[in-house]
Simulated assay, not measured.
Amino acid sequence: MRMLNVFDIVKLTKIDHKEVDSNQIVVTDGNGKPNAVLTELLNDVVGNMRIFLDMTNIYSVTDLMQALSDHTPLPAEVLDEYEKVLREPIDGINFVPKRGQVEVVVGE
Score class of each variant (00 low, 15 high):
64 L>Y: 08
52 F>S: 05
59 Y>V: 10
103 E>T: 06
54 D>E: 06
56 T>K: 09
5 N>G: 10
70 D>P: 11
75 P>M: 01
51 I>K: 11
79 L>I: 00
26 V>W: 09
77 E>R: 00
9 I>K: 02
32 G>E: 03
70 D>R: 12
81 E>M: 15
20 V>D: 02
5 N>H: 04
63 D>K: 04
26 V>C: 01
4 L>N: 11
50 R>Q: 09
67 A>W: 04
86 L>N: 01
59 Y>C: 11
99 R>Q: 13
55 M>L: 09
53 L>E: 03
54 D>Q: 07
22 S>Q: 04
10 V>R: 09
80 D>K: 03
63 D>G: 04
41 L>R: 11
18 K>I: 14
51 I>C: 07
104 V>P: 03
31 N>A: 11
85 V>Y: 02
98 K>C: 03
64 L>N: 04
9 I>H: 06
21 D>V: 15
1 M>W: 07
78 V>R: 00
104 V>A: 04
50 R>Y: 07
62 T>C: 05
99 R>P: 05
93 I>G: 07
60 S>A: 09
54 D>T: 11
53 L>Q: 01
24 Q>G: 03
66 Q>I: 04
9 I>M: 06
8 D>I: 12
15 I>P: 05
57 N>F: 13
19 E>C: 10
63 D>T: 08
12 L>Q: 08
92 G>C: 12
65 M>V: 12
73 P>N: 15
105 V>N: 01
7 F>L: 02
76 A>G: 03
69 S>P: 00
9 I>R: 00
67 A>G: 13
41 L>T: 15
15 I>W: 07
101 Q>T: 11
92 G>H: 14
101 Q>M: 12
64 L>M: 15
27 V>R: 05
49 M>E: 01
84 K>T: 14
108 E>K: 14
77 E>L: 00
59 Y>F: 09
50 R>E: 06
7 F>A: 01
36 A>C: 08
12 L>C: 08
69 S>I: 00
104 V>S: 00
79 L>C: 02
12 L>W: 05
93 I>N: 05
49 M>V: 13
47 G>P: 01
103 E>D: 09
55 M>R: 05
88 E>G: 01
92 G>R: 02
82 Y>R: 01
89 P>K: 04
73 P>D: 15
102 V>W: 08
61 V>L: 02
15 I>S: 00
96 V>F: 06
26 V>L: 11
76 A>K: 03
55 M>T: 12
74 L>M: 14
7 F>Y: 03
79 L>K: 02
61 V>H: 04
69 S>W: 01
68 L>R: 02
100 G>S: 10
70 D>A: 08
33 K>W: 13
83 E>R: 10
88 E>D: 07
48 N>I: 03
91 D>M: 14
100 G>F: 01
99 R>W: 01
102 V>G: 04
34 P>H: 07
59 Y>R: 15
15 I>K: 12
76 A>D: 14
105 V>A: 10
37 V>Q: 09
80 D>Y: 05
9 I>F: 14
25 I>T: 06
34 P>N: 01
69 S>N: 13
13 T>Q: 09
48 N>C: 02
97 P>M: 06
80 D>W: 01
2 R>Q: 15
36 A>N: 10
40 E>W: 12
57 N>E: 15
100 G>E: 03
95 F>I: 07
18 K>G: 00
95 F>L: 14
45 V>P: 04
20 V>S: 00
27 V>D: 10
41 L>I: 11
61 V>M: 04
